[in-house]
């Protein structure tokens, strides 16, 4: 039922958005259905697969476990904005070179989750990388190539020679 509707104002990828949404609408449904930002994906809708990963006020969150109504005043970033801003260009290049994606459905979430780890500036171990992305389900790659790609970016950002 849609008798409960909320007015929200937030920024999405730097643009101010003012909308009226169903109170029950998840953030990812709001992004996809209302703003037509289809780069965030819906995989499980119960917080396990990570395909809906976005950033809210700088933190990586599950777009299916947060309601749009909770985002009033928030700063939301999706893959479209993070990609266009150039922040993860090196990570995207590494994913391409290493074929660290196949169908690509998990990839936007995987990139944002990886960037969260990489932003620390450390060079994490492969185990640490695997742990970091263990909330992001990929059925295609078997993860090895993803770990390779993230590891190579961590080393490059830390100034290691490839």
């Amino acid at each position: 039922m849609s008798e409960h509707r909320c007015d929200i104002t937030l920024t999405v990828n730097g643009e101010t958005v003012a909308e009226t949404v169903d109170a029950r609408k998840t953030l990812v449904d709001f992004l996809r259905d209302d703003l037509i930002l289809t780069g965030s994906h819906v995989g499980c809708e119960h917080g396990v697969c990570g395909a809906c990963t976005v950033r809210v006020d700088g933190d990586v969150v599950r777009g299916c476990l947060m309601l749009a109504a909770q985002c009033n005043g928030a700063r939301v970033e999706t893959i479209e904005g993070v990609s266009d801003g150039g922040e993860i260009a090196d990570l995207q290049t590494a994913f391409e070179q290493r074929n660290a994606l196949q169908c690509g459905f998990c990839t936007p979430g995987m990139l944002l989750t990886a960037q969260e780890l990489l932003a620390s500036g450390q060079v994490p171990s492969r185990e640490k990388i695997r742990e970091q992305i263990s909330g992001n389900y990929c059925r295609c790659t078997g993860y090895h190539a993803i770990v390779d790609a993230i590891e190579s970016v961590a080393q490059a950002r830390a100034g290691h020679k490839p």
Binding site: L37, G39, T78, I79, E80
Partner: peptide
């Protein structure tokens, strides 16, 4: 691959 990594893919679930 570029479109898949930029959020510019078109899966059927995206079709309107």
């Amino acid at each position: 691959m570029a479109r898949l990594m930029q959020g510019r893919a078109q899966y059927v679930s995206d079709v309107v």
